[in-house]
């Protein structure tokens, strides 16, 4: 539809979330852990703009402070997966032969396990905490990235300027980093920003299932998991963190789609 608008809307939203993640504790009107047992399940009011939860904690403060957790998990997973996936894809695509075959078979195998099932199985093995979560999301993201980068490298490898670089005796790392990677960057950046949105969805889903960041940390998914049993008495406790998740995913999606329209006219 309107690519420049998408891009700037996504970037603005992301910037807002970034500020919340950095200065959340200063912005939040209350201590996110402070309980007020005389104000349980208060609906939104002048004192508590978004109401309070089952032990009287301020929802607005919890959602604001929780931004850092979700954003950090998403960014860390995408950064690690990006580094590993790009490295594997470059190596597989550039060297070909047995190296390529081993990497391709491994990624193909991992891609037959539904991504969320793989994440859950890995969290079961590593542990239900932020480290386990980031590791599991990272591993589940690597195969598709490696495949994408490999395909791009195979395209670029045949081009004359790469051939020329090889002919003048340039060494592999230099060809990969100076000639091939820069031409694959736009594809990678687009994929990573869309993946960040997916990482937010997976991270909060695992928090919701009790397999991610554990309460009492104000993680959005964990807050949603706790709110499930209070849907009848206090729907606002379930609505607010869900809106926060949706907005953050929306921001990454708009940014990624806008970027794709800007950088990749073939799509």
């Amino acid at each position: 539809m309107n690519a420049p608008l998408f891009l700037s809307a996504g970037a603005t939203l992301l910037l807002a979330f970034l500020l919340l993640a950095l200065f959340g504790h200063a912005i939040a009107p209350y201590d996110p852990a402070a309980q007020d047992l005389l104000a349980m399940f208060d609906p939104p009011s002048a004192d508590h703009w978004l109401g309070t939860d089952e032990i009287g904690r301020d929802m607005l403060s919890r959602v604001i402070v929780g931004t850092r957790i979700t954003l950090a998990i998403a960014c860390a997973s995408v950064l690690f997966a990006g580094t590993a996936g790009v490295a594997l894809g470059l190596i597989a695509g550039h060297f070909g032969g047995a190296t390529d075959r081993i990497i391709t078979v491994a990624t193909d195998l991992l891609m037959t396990v539904p991504s969320l099932v793989l994440t859950i199985a890995m969290v079961a093995a590593i542990g239900a905490n932020a480290v386990g979560l980031v590791t599991a999301i990272t591993v589940s993201f690597i195969p598709s990235l490696a495949r994408l980068v490999r395909a791009r490298v195979l395209e670029l490898r045949e081009l004359d300027y790469v051939e020329a670089a090889r002919a003048v005796g340039m060494r592999h790392p230099r060809i990969l980093l100076r000639h091939i990677l820069p031409n694959a960057v736009s594809v990678i950046v687009i994929e990573l920003s869309l993946m960040a949105g997916q990482a937010v969805l997976v991270g909060t889903a695992l928090g919701f299932l009790g397999l991610g960041v554990q309460p009492p940390a104000p993680e959005w998914g964990a807050m949603l998991g706790a709110s499930r049993q209070y849907l009848e008495v206090a729907p606002h406790v379930a609505i607010i963190p869900g809106l926060a998740v949706s907005l953050l995913v929306l921001a990454f999606n708009l940014f990624g789609d806008g970027l794709r329209d800007r950088l990749d006219p073939t799509q």
Binding site: M1, L231, G242, S246, V249, N253
Partner: peptide
């Protein structure tokens, strides 16, 4: 429809489910 598409791609499925429960069950 286009706005609906953008929204549905951002909403977590479990939260959508919870909102459906809140509306149609509760």
């Amino acid at each position: 429809v286009s706005a609906g598409v953008v929204a549905l791609l951002a909403v977590p499925n479990f939260w959508l489910g919870m909102m459906l429960i809140a509306l149609f069950s509760v």
